[in-house]
Design a protein around this nucleic acid. Structure first.
Lengths: 228, 228
DNA sequence: CAGATGGTTCGATTAATCTCGTACTATGCA
DNA sequence: TGCATAGTACGAGATTAATCGAACCATCTG
């Protein structure tokens, strides 16, 4: 009858509106407390607690206890990818249900996906990096070229340091809004960190939108190769 | 509160054991009738019917009516990819639940994923095609080289004909059992078709396993570049 | 036109689960 | 020590959904 792993269990864990909202919020990448997630999901604290227990049981989120706060985050970059994948499928099937609200354009332009940049700008960045041959793409994934290591080092991102981490250096992440790849992995995260550090952009509060200042966006275009 | 598409709705559609079994069965790529899917899911026909209605409503499956038979198939290659993605996540989280049964090794070695070859052999094939430079990989995806077009044409796969189809020619599909990419898309499907046509392998009945004959497997290794 | 088979629709029963009020534990602060 | 806050555990009420029996429609066969 059934072969392979039991997908029903974890799909059911995602398949509740409250839990889906929590997971979507966590796709922002920042760890959130149980109360914040309760607010995000629109349920009481007790309800949120049981939901979080279930998500944790399914292995979709991980907890980190700091004092009396319990910080929840996505268990894994793979879970984040799964969620983006789900959004991609959902976006095509239910276009009429949610009409493009006012927040949509900003989300489409630049948003955070787990811990890296997604949206039009994220896609343009990866395309540009490949066009400029800072990154080469083959089947095993993406990898920086020698030129890329040098240029990115000058930008303030030390590749050799990033290689030391457990997570993969580069990864292509499919974007649900644009349906094309953007750069994830340790390098993708490091680049977004740099963008924040330089004050070019910042997270809109309680949202996944990344707001670039006008000067910040043009500075980005001068510093890194963006396609188009 | 919630931004982006509603993933809960479609995750819930997958999140029932009966429906998950149906979808897993459909991952085999062949369209199945409602009765077959009922058998696969272990439920009565009426129950299966309502499940299928829900899956159809969620846009996960498509129906094709031929006479009194209703053939269900996955709506989309993207849905197939989502399911494989789910299996990947599920496989890591619940390793103890399902012990490696007798069918597992065969599934791991060669199975069908939607309409193309997956498993060890599928991965070795894509790796080999890239090593031999029949296919090049960049960010936009995979694409056959001029050499590849020529060689594959000699093998009986007309690339220019495949380009005419709507679906993408090449696509990398992540394998849940091996956690590496294999070849999907129109070319992946065409290659598997050729493998069947030459009698090198055939589908095990009621299963996703692809059984190669000993001579078939060695013939494959002579005709196409396999890695390792 | 019967007879048989594949599928769906309807309704009732049963099981699961989402939700929150109340009560309880643990941490931090004055 | 006292008190507020973060989080969890438990239990009851309400909602949802899964399941199958029975009846009904459509299609193929003789």
């Amino acid at each position: 009858m059934q072969s392979g792993p039991s997908i029903a269990h974890i799909a059911a864990a995602i398949g509740d509106p409250a839990r889906a909202n929590m997971l979507t919020a966590l796709t922002g990448g920042t760890a959130l407390t149980a109360s914040e997630l309760a607010l995000e999901a629109g349920v009481a604290k007790q309800t949120a607690s049981s939901h979080l227990a279930r998500l944790s049981d399914a292995g979709l989120v991980a907890v980190e206890k700091q004092g009396r706060h319990h910080y929840y985050r996505l268990a894994d970059a793979e879970v984040a990818r799964l969620l983006e994948n789900l959004m991609g499928v959902a976006a095509r099937r239910a276009p009429a249900r949610v009409r493009p609200g006012p927040k949509e354009p900003a989300l489409r332009h630049a948003r955070v996906c787990y811990d890296h940049l997604a949206g039009d700008l994220g896609v343009a960045l990866l395309d540009g990096l490949i066009e400029a041959k800072w990154i080469k793409a083959d089947d095993a994934g993406l990898a920086p070229t020698r030129l890329g290591v040098e240029k990115l080092g000058a930008f303030g991102v030390d590749i050799t340091e990033l290689r030391g981490l457990k997570r993969p250096l580069c990864r292509a992440c499919l974007d649900w809004s644009v349906r094309r790849n953007h750069l994830a992995g340790a390098l993708g995260a490091a680049l977004l960190t740099q963008i924040y550090a330089r004050g070019w952009a910042r997270r809109r509060r309680q949202s996944r939108v990344v707001e670039f200042s006008p000067t910040g966006e043009s500075a980005l275009k001068r510093a890194l190769p963006l396609a188009r």
